[in-house]
Amino acid sequence: MELLGHILILIGSIFSLLGAFGILRMPDIYNRLQAGTKATTLGALSLILGVGLANPAFLGKSILLILFIVLTNPISSSTIARSGRRADIPMLKNAVVDAYAEKVGKTQAAADKKRSNRADADDPQTAVKEANV
């Protein structure tokens, strides 16, 4: 059991190292996130499970940690990618398609419309103020 734990720790470290290579080699933020998320998730899972097996006193806690990591890791990278896309961080030049552009475009148009509506609503007030003056 202890040997299995040590092997898992080794595998986890290797995957974390590969993830680090991925972050260095990938050309843009989205591809880097891809390499980073997957490698760190499996790397951390394997490491933590390995610690749990090598020292059974930690097994319950390590399973709990694994659950937290599986639930939160993908959400955080989704959120980073989403914010990156919304902040117009460019994709690789030879990217094949970008279906998200139309959606962000729509949101942008909606935001503009909202703003102009508010401006319209403001107008009468200004008019009243001006009349009072």
């Binding site: 290579f21 843009d28 390499a35 994709m91 990217a95 094949v96 398609v97 279906a99 552009a101």
Partner: peptide, 12 residues
Amino acid sequence: VLRPSLPINPGI
């Protein structure tokens, strides 16, 4: 990542 040619073809 390990292949020198870095074979990717990304898009959304």
